[in-house]
Design a protein around this nucleic acid. Structure first.
Length: 536
RNA sequence: GCCCCUGUAGCUCAGUGGAUAGAGCGGCUGCCUUCUAAGCAGCGGGUCGCAGGUUCGAAUCCUGCCGGGGGCACCA
């Protein structure tokens, strides 16, 4: 039972004793920013003042009195402050308890949750067209998708990562045309792909002079390249789902036929329309063009029907760039029309990523590839950099700045903390110091402000992971791990673990604190997909 | 015109409706005889775009306005 639960329960019990009707369904408990406001704080007296028929200060005072009379475990004092906050001052024992939990659960178990209860969630991300290498614009979100997958997994979901391969249609045809043009030594068509990589592929191509064959061949080669780029970032997909396969299987026809049965489909102007306005879209959408061809939407709906109704995922999260914003409403509407309950499909839109030098475009060949970026600054810096801020924030990647600042990239700050920990352990072994079992160590000796900062940080990780999961916000883990690293560096600087003037008992206690910090760093870096080096 | 993001320190950004809004970078100044100085500490820096509203309490929620980015095909 966590301290928060203990406090919440005792507050509820106290409210019941005070005959507050109705009791709140949950008691908000937070960690005040300022130390003088205690270790934990609740606003419950303000939110329940009306129900109690008393002023917030009065209710808070009554609560504080009751809670002080029979203090819950770890509680040293209960105080009323400000407009009616109930502030809990805890004994340091709660932080020592928290450290024990970290150590007991370890890297495997700490900050793990069962919120997903094993439900199957599919994450679709990247899904960049195989018409050119993965560039910084469409690759930036790949760390987000992968980290979100890791976080969902830690919170109890069964996670499947999927890349939707757009291996059909006009873009592949244009790729084929561009390839053949290059092979002939001619200029690529105006709408074609101008990049140097097309010339390289053309030199390697010895297939037939057929646009379709050439396009498919090139797309296959490019996809291999994208796959290896992603693997270099430790991103591995469970499924590479081919758009062509869904078209060839007849699933698109089936899906449209299903929709025709729903009265959400009508014919007009020689085309077949989805009445998506009936389910929240701003306009109706075409499913079958007047020339008999299916639209992209029809294929996309067939694909999503496959996800939900064929493969049976409980939940699907599509991660798109903001330039796909226009297709979200119709996709959601179409999926609902297929009878998939609301909320099972989620679309996360990442705002634009651009280069300081200008716009990126595959067609013009003007882009910086992920391979170049990774070669420049390494996979760890690449991942952490792209997981620093919310995906709601448009990002401008300034390569010049990144190269110049690569040594002061926050990733090193965090990894350095882990390397220092490993170093402490090496020295410990060299000096033949044994770490005693934690239950034989007096953790009460950990009372230095720097030590308490580290412990407090560690105790917050489970909450941080859960919030990051619920809000689909991996960057919260990044924020946390930087915070922990900051506290660890402070501790490292001020608190020698094995110095001569440090007593053996304190050394033992600090060794366990260091172990706790190691676990916290390892868990968080693992969720972000950043390595935790033993030395730097 | 409609839809989605966004506006917080010189710059890049954090900030689950809480109390005196934070960090990194850049600038200046200190700290290596101990386990890694890729570190620590200090100084300076703010009308949280503007105006209303909801609330005991708003950077956070609602409305309007202004600025920035993106999207609004019988393209994919």
């Amino acid at each position: 039972m966590t301290v928060r639960d203990i406090l919440a329960d005792s507050v509820l019990a106290a409210l019941a004793d005070l005959e507050v009707e109705p009791l709140p369904t949950a008691v908000a408990l937070e960690r005040p920013a300022r130390p003088e406001h205690g270790d934990w704080s609740s606003n419950v007296a303000m939110t329940s003042a009306k129900a109690a028929g008393r002023s917030p200060r009065e209710l808070a005072a009554a609560l504080a009195e009751r809670l002080s009379a029979h203090p819950p475990p770890h509680v040293a004092a209960v105080e009323v402050a400000g407009p009616g906050f109930v502030n809990f001052r805890l004994r340091q024992s709660w932080l020592q308890e928290a450290l024990c939990e970290v150590v007991r659960e370890g890297t495997e178990g700490y900050a793990r949750h069962d919120e997903g209860k094993g439900e199957r969630v599919q994450l679709e991300f990247v899904s960049a067209n195989p018409t050119g290498p993965l560039h910084v614009g469409n690759g930036w979100l790949c760390s987000y998708g992968d980290a979100l997958g890791r976080i969902l997994f830690r919170c109890g979901w069964s996670v499947s990562r999927e890349y939707y391969v757009n291996d059909t249609g006009g873009q592949i045809r244009r790729l084929g045309e561009s390839l053949l043009a290059r092979r002939r030594g001619a200029d690529v068509p105006e709408e074609g792909y101008q990049g140097e990589y097309v010339s390289e592929l053309a030199r390697a191509y010895d297939g037939p002079d057929d646009v379709g064959a050439a396009g498919r061949w090139a797309a296959g080669r490019i996809l291999d390249n994208i796959r290896s780029t992603l693997e270099g970032l430790d991103i591995v997909f469970d499924e590479w789902f081919s758009q062509a396969s869904i078209e060839e299987s007849g699933a698109v026809e089936e899906t449209v036929a299903l929709l025709r049965d729903t009265d959400l489909v009508y014919e007009a102007d020689g085309a077949t329309w989805l009445r998506s306005t009936a389910v929240g879209d701003s306009r109706d959408r075409v499913l079958v063009k007047s020339d008999g061809e299916f639209t992209y939407l029809a294929g996309d709906l067939a694909y999503h029907r496959d996800k939900f109704l064929v493969r049976g995922f409980d939940r699907v999260i599509d991660i798109f760039g903001a330039d796909h914003h226009g297709q979200v409403a119709s996709l959601l509407a179409g999926v609902e029309a297929l009878g998939v309950g609301p909320g099972r499909l989620e679309v996360e839109l990442g705002q634009m990523v651009s280069l300081a030098e200008g716009k990126m475009s595959k067609r013009s060949g003007n882009f910086v590839s992920m391979d170049e970026l990774v070669a420049d600054i390494g996979p760890d810096a690449t991942r952490l950099l792209s997981l620093m801020n919310s995906i709601d924030q448009a990002t401008t990647v300034d390569l010049e700045l990144i190269r110049r600042q690569s040594m002061e990239n926050p990733v090193y700050y965090v990894q350095y903390a882990h390397a220092r920990i490993a170093s402490i352990d090496r020295v410990r072994a060299e000096r033949g110091i044994e770490r005693l079992p934690i239950d034989r160590v007096d953790l009460g000796l950990l009372a230095h402000a720097r030590e308490l900062d580290v412990l407090r940080s560690l105790s917050e990780l489970p909450d941080v992971v859960l919030v990051a999961c619920r809000e689909r916000a991996p960057h919260k883990v990044t924020t946390w791990v930087r915070e922990l690293a900051k506290h660890f560096h402070g501790f490292y600087h001020d608190c020698y673990v094995m110095g001569q003037e440090v007593g053996e008992e304190l050394t033992q206690a600090r060794l366990w604190l260091v172990e706790g910090a190691r676990i916290g760093l390892a868990v968080a870096l693992g969720l972000l997909g950043v390595s935790a080096p033993e030395s730097m």
